[in-house]
Design a protein around this nucleic acid. Sequence first.
DNA 1: CTTTAGCACTTTCCTTTCTTAAGTGCTAAC
DNA 2: GTTAGCACTTAAGAAAGGAAAGTGCTAAAG
Lengths: 335, 335
Amino acid sequence: MINTRQNDILKAIIEEYIKTARPVSSKSLCKKFKCSSATIRNDMMVLENVGYLEKTHISSGRIPSEEGYRYYVDHLMEPKDITGSDMLKLQTIFSNKQLDINDAISKSLEIIADMTNYTSVVLGSSAKDNTLKKVEVVPISESKIIAIVITDKGHVENKEITLSERVDSKEVMKATELLNKMLVGTPLTEVGSKLEYDIKPIISNYVKNYEVLYNAFYEALSNFTEEKSVKFSGKVNMLKQPEFDKVDDVKNIISKFESKDIVNKIEGTDNEVKVYIGKESEFDDNVTIVKTKYKTPSDEGTIAVIGPKRMEYERVVTLLEYIKKNIEENSNEEK
Amino acid sequence: MINTRQNDILKAIIEEYIKTARPVSSKSLCKKFKCSSATIRNDMMVLENVGYLEKTHISSGRIPSEEGYRYYVDHLMEPKDITGSDMLKLQTIFSNKQLDINDAISKSLEIIADMTNYTSVVLGSSAKDNTLKKVEVVPISESKIIAIVITDKGHVENKEITLSERVDSKEVMKATELLNKMLVGTPLTEVGSKLEYDIKPIISNYVKNYEVLYNAFYEALSNFTEEKSVKFSGKVNMLKQPEFDKVDDVKNIISKFESKDIVNKIEGTDNEVKVYIGKESEFDDNVTIVKTKYKTPSDEGTIAVIGPKRMEYERVVTLLEYIKKNIEENSNEEK
DNA sequence: CTTTAGCACTTTCCTTTCTTAAGTGCTAAC
DNA sequence: GTTAGCACTTAAGAAAGGAAAGTGCTAAAG
């Protein structure tokens, strides 16, 4: 359907547009293809008819359509090895054994945001399917204690509990012991009901002033957040892209960045680096999201780069693949 | 210098402008002051000459100048009691004994952001002047342990430590015990040097494979962040204000919200609610920041509202005073 | 059958010109 | 001190014109 030169022209147009953000004219491709602008125009017409190119107005140069980008990503681009300068900035991170893996992930995506001028995101996993490893209680003052929950995968959460009445610290200890005895190994999702049905009937036997304590713990433990951690870097980078020159678009994208359900929109479903262009992103028609899940023995999450559709696809894909590989290799070593 | 009617006119203009965001004309004030537009104009002229009013162009209505707002805040506005509907939304928070004080603070500033359509901020205190209360270590896997530090004021931080070599869990216990023995009560700022000069020489006597462990702990403990927690609500609200209708202003304010040193710019220095208008804010010429420090027995921090200079001053000041009072009363009860 | 030169045509973008509406400053009279 | 009246200014929007960029189409050349 599309001949070789047309493929080459499409590739050239997309790459030029990615560089300049301006419609590409037939004339500007003459030298490269050693033919006249009319010839290029004929091919452009074909490419427009199959839906890979668009015009901004009837007599403008061409810009890639969403399908054009899709075709480019699937068939035309050639992700190369990571470039020397990109490598240089990233390699120290994973070779630095001082950094724990989570810090390394965050740090590397910060750097990617800086290098590319796009926005990057790290979504940690939720502790939802973790089980409780330990409950620790530290008294801070006479009426205030800190409850700390540690899960088997190393998630830690803490919550201040204010006791409405004074409670003997020995009672607190006893209650904590009981909680540990009965809750260790319990999936976090079941802690709430276990407190209610298993612990509540028993705690009264052990602890004098149990009601106060029970309520406090109930509040604290059953509330342990299932929220995933979300870490953006370079939110503002997006706004520097020339496509964001209208106030409404800027407000719109910022609103989306701040919205509560961003996690669901960004979270990766796939174990390799995938590209979601415009509508495909289900986030915003004006952006492309490149993302992948990563897995370590103790954790999993998503790393993603959000940029304009006019994104340096080859580079971003290469970078994310590199990071993913490093995350997984480095965490395996540790195991 | 300024007579009574002029004061009244200034107040009326500012309040009208706060409502509508449009320059106020002399004619629009005729009914209210029962005189002709020419009379109002004469007074407007006076108010402009003393610097409280401005024109957007030579034949436009008047808008308040920064000095005008200042004068309004200092002399003209009359913060009333909190209104019924505002009260309604806030009062449940502090009467809810389940919520710990920090959650109550966050929650109430979220609500304020919603109610007012401005942006609110809670700056927690740093743990800088805390002392170490307890170090807890939980082994997660053979090579991974979680170190948890609890301070006397109830700050909790945790850090994953990956041991580069296998270390016997008994050794870890011993090391932890030693750390607790020697570090409890130490100001966090001194933990690093104490580790280096006091602990390092001793730990080798107690623990066989001390080097690995020592390095791990050193990394973990001396890195405990001094960062203050920053919690924004309604970042996007700001953008809804009609003054942010130009793309550069929007980008600018968003960049400032995202910038690293925001803490220093927002942090309160004063123990009462203060208003910083435009340049006074030292944050951005287009905004007003209303803020105050709050203190609880265990903590202190800043609560602030950021909005356009054309802000509902009376309401915001009243709201912040109300919140501050509640924070301090509720936390004292607990003591 | 493919490529190209040539040209008419269209749109954007920038200026210029008008017009209208809003609101002021000033003057002179009350 | 207040007011009516009027000239004057500006913003904002519409209309008109011209230059620049780039296309589509046609017909000729390879």
